[in-house]
């Protein structure tokens, strides 16, 4: 079982690596809006979903993988816990 803070850190790092350019100094925390702020768009969100599914060998149904459920790192952590 992965603990929350470890999971939070892994997702946060992934978001920074995947969605911010090297010269982008946007500060992102666990509650920062990701999709509603435009940092992650609804299509490129698929990378994050695929990453989580492959890393943790889970399957997140499309009905659950909504832009709202993926709108912050903490919300994603809460969603993930349903599938562990």
């Amino acid at each position: 079982m992965v603990n929350d803070s470890e999971l939070c850190e892994i997702i946060l790092q992934y978001v920074k690596d995947e969605y911010l350019d090297e010269d982008d100094d946007t500060q992102i925390g666990p509650d920062s809006p990701l999709i509603s702020s435009g940092i992650v768009d609804s299509f490129s969100m698929v990378s994050l979903k695929t990453f989580l599914e492959r890393k943790y060998k889970i399957s997140i149904p499309d009905a659950k993988a909504t832009p709202e459920a993926f709108d912050s790192v903490n919300k994603i952590v809460a969603l993930m816990k349903e599938f562990f």
């Binding site: 995947e18 350019d21 299509f43 490129s44 698929v46 990378s47 979903k49 695929t50």
Partner: peptide, 16 residues
């Protein structure tokens, strides 16, 4: 294309 990709059963990935 985004809609078409979403309709497919393949794994979906994107690059910058």
């Amino acid at each position: 294309l985004v809609d078409g990709i979403r309709l497919s059963k393949a794994l979906q990935e994107s690059y910058k």
